[in-house]
Design a protein around this nucleic acid. Structure first.
Length: 300
RNA sequence: CCAGCGGUAGCAAAGCGGUUAUGCGAUGGUCUGUAAAACCAUUUUAGGCAGGUUCAACUCCUGCCCGCUGGA
């Protein structure tokens, strides 16, 4: 029996994932599922570059208010549901987005333990110094702790989660996914990405990003998870004391953060050999993808 | 022209007569349920210019150049 097909389109910011996904959806009778940890939020439109393609359905966009938290676990659950219903409609699910971690949560095959987030636990441990967290790990989790690398050892967020997983409670096995994934990854040299980003920053300001932020601030606060987003968080000092200087430095910060973000994404995807890479600056770009997908799509 | 303050790594910004400021950025990474997050490593001795004092000067002294502020 052949597995059901799921197409994935990932890649760093500003590579035009959505517009490619829309094209492919039209061509192969598909519906999109966004794997984007920011476009999940209502009201973050200009800053996250949200598209509302006409004629193509896109799921998991605008499903949360900016003061709600979300996680890869929830993403996985929702996305798997969507994949199922799209298949039932005899259509092709197309996952599209730059949040590599969300995509991993779908693709990883090994059964995993499920341990729900416990907000009280996190808020308590967030108050403790990281040296204490390390000590706790050494006591309760010695072997795992000694195998951690520097980066993980010094990361309070990760240490807390690792302790949280150890808490008693129900832990469910998740079966492997019976899907035939084709994972495409759009990419480009960093220089090209950076100049695309710079252009986009300008046009987003013109589109009225500041007005959008103003509107969000009526109902939400800078500490809300949705506002801790590139293109928003950088403007907090500006809204605290508006002046040409604070505006300029906010925009400069935003640009820098956006560049760094693209780089992190590049690093993330680079390491995954199962992906099929497409360079968006190559002359064969859009047509080469379409024929590649067609081959996979028509195969049994 | 006079006076005051200042000139420190790509940028910002301290202390100090003799060991690494630091932050940001940049570069390379980490990642198994907060990921546009969080975290790690690297960024080979920088100190406006010319002298002087000293065993030793980014640090003290003199002159010059440049910037900011105030006064004529």
């Amino acid at each position: 029996m052949s597995k059901k097909k799921v197409l994935i389109i990932s890649g760093p910011t500003s590579t035009g994932k959505t517009s490619l996904a829309v094209k492919l959806a039209q061509r192969f009778n598909g519906e999109l599922i966004s794997a984007d940890s920011r476009q999940i939020y209502r009201g973050l439109d200009i800053g996250t570059g949200k598209d509302h393609p006409s004629g193509t359905l896109i799921h998991l966009v605008d499903i949360l208010n900016p003061n709600q938290t979300f996680s890869a676990f929830q993403f996985r659950r929702l996305a798997l549901e969507k994949i199922k219903t799209i298949h039932q409609k005899k259509k092709l699910p197309i996952i599209v987005g730059g949040t590599g971690y969300y995509i991993d949560s779908l693709v990883k095959k090994e059964p995993q333990f499920l341990s729900p987030p416990r907000p009280w636990f996190r808020s308590f441990f967030n108050l403790l110094p990281s040296s204490f967290l390390k000590l706790l790990h050494l006591l309760f989790n010695r072997r795992q702790y000694l195998n951690l690398n520097q980066s993980e050892k010094n990361n309070p967020q990760r240490l807390i989660r690792k302790l949280e997983v150890k808490l008693p409670g129900k832990k469910n096995k998740i079966p492997p996914f019976p899907y035939d994934f084709l994972h495409l990854n759009l990419t480009a040299p960093q220089k090209i990405l950076n100049s695309r980003i710079d252009q986009r920053v300008k046009s987003r300001l013109k589109q009225g990003l500041l007005k959008e932020i103003e509107k969000l601030l009526v109902s939400y606060d800078w500490s809300d998870p949705g506002l801790k987003t590139l293109a928003y968080q950088e403007f907090e000092p500006y809204f605290a004391s508006p002046s040409p200087q604070t505006l300029i430095s906010a925009v400069a910060k935003w640009r820098q953060h956006e560049h760094a973000y693209a780089k992190r994404q590049l690093t993330w995807f680079k390491k995954r050999p199962a992906l099929k890479f497409f360079y968006i600056n190559s002359s064969a770009y859009p047509s080469s993808v379409i024929s590649f997908v067609a081959k996979w799509y028509n195969k049994l």
